[in-house]
Write a protein that binds this DNA or RNA. Structure first.
Lengths: 194, 194
DNA sequence: AAAATACTTGAATGTATGTTCAATAAATAA
DNA sequence: TTATTTATTGAACATACATTCAAGTATTTT
């Protein structure tokens, strides 16, 4: 027996960044060996092929984002304050003009959803679980009497998801705080309005 | 002298569809010769190279969309009715599950914006002119006293742009009328609210 | 009609790519 | 220690790709 020498999470995050900057198709194995420090054979041994590494990177991405999400919402603050902080974070990411801060799930879905059914399934499932997590936040807001008891948490979460997708795209054309912050503010206001 | 034998607009729309389905990187010259009916040499003669054909296809896309937009809004109906019809169209496109109905500008920006500055500029400019056209619609709504005179048309258009970006992404994960229509309805309602 | 011009054809070219593999090294088990 | 298993190395491979080009064809100009 012999264990792998490399740190799997580090390798996956390096691959993740490379895929985020170049996209899947334009990321070469050479890019990946440079970014991860692994030789081709090691990548094929550990992840089967380029696509396998990509899928593993997507899964790592989801895990990292989920953990970040839980950390942000795991407190006793008002759910709406947490939502506000969450949107501020997304605005910040948009301002950074850093491709490694954008969403690997939507980017991959946009690039490959049409041609790779499995990757479409994986990304859609992860996006769906994000939607559900947001719905939970609105449920909490309801319990905290911050929004009307008649509110449809599911729907509000869907609307917020839509808004965040849109906000990220706007950020890619206008990474400007004076553009993004008012949009985020109105989005939140429209969500909590009775 | 001798004129090209092919119909340039037809060729560009065929290329457009191919790029929309496969993305730029995964569209091969072979795909393009098959889709357009042109031989490689003809493509290189008319458009320089694959990238030149891509840029020409983007420009054709913008022209087609602008024309469609103007047709939809060139009437004496209420500006809000026109907006409502416009959103219904976008919902329809989302339901179609047809990659050729999605937005070539945002898709190209997402795929290549990080690596090709010129394509980033072109797509951002076209998206910006769309934003301006929508701002004009809100100006009209203001003149028609359909929205408050204090409304910021520029901002409302930006918010609508954000919503449409988001709606299109939601459609790619859930092409379901029961998901998309309520989102479009709330988006419009939030726009015209005082 | 003849010359000139410009488009069309499709095979050929060189390059870049994802992948494989045999040799080597390291770790564990017997 | 020895045997066995598994990871690492990096050169080699086959393929697929964007692009070129020389020959052929059609149209216009003189």
């Amino acid at each position: 027996m012999r264990n792998a020498e490399f740190d799997k999470e580090k390798v996956l995050r390096a691959a993740m960044c490379t895929f985020l900057v170049n996209g899947y198709a334009k990321t070469s194995m050479q890019d990946l060996t440079k970014a991860t420090g692994l030789h081709p054979g090691s990548i094929y041994c550990a992840f089967d092929n380029k696509r396998g590494l990509f899928i593993a990177a997507i899964e790592q991405y989801q895990q990292d984002r989920s953990q970040q999400f839980e950390q942000l919402f795991a407190n006793e603050h008002s759910a709406l304050d947490n939502l506000s902080r969450y949107l501020a974070l997304i605005v910040q990411e948009g301002l950074s003009c850093d491709a490694t801060q954008s969403c690997l799930l939507t980017k991959s879905l946009s690039e490959m959803g049409e041609q790779d059914e499995q990757i479409k399934q994986i990304t859609c499932n992860f996006l769906q679980s994000w939607h559900l997590a947001l719905a939970q936040v609105f449920e909490t807001a309801k319990q905290q009497k911050l929004i009307s008891a008649q509110s449809n948490s599911q729907f509000l979460a869907q609307y917020l998801v839509m808004g965040i997708y849109g906000l990220r795209t706007v950020a890619s054309t206008q990474p400007d705080i004076d553009v993004l912050q008012p949009l985020a503010d109105k989005l939140l206001a429209d969500l909590i309005r009775q």
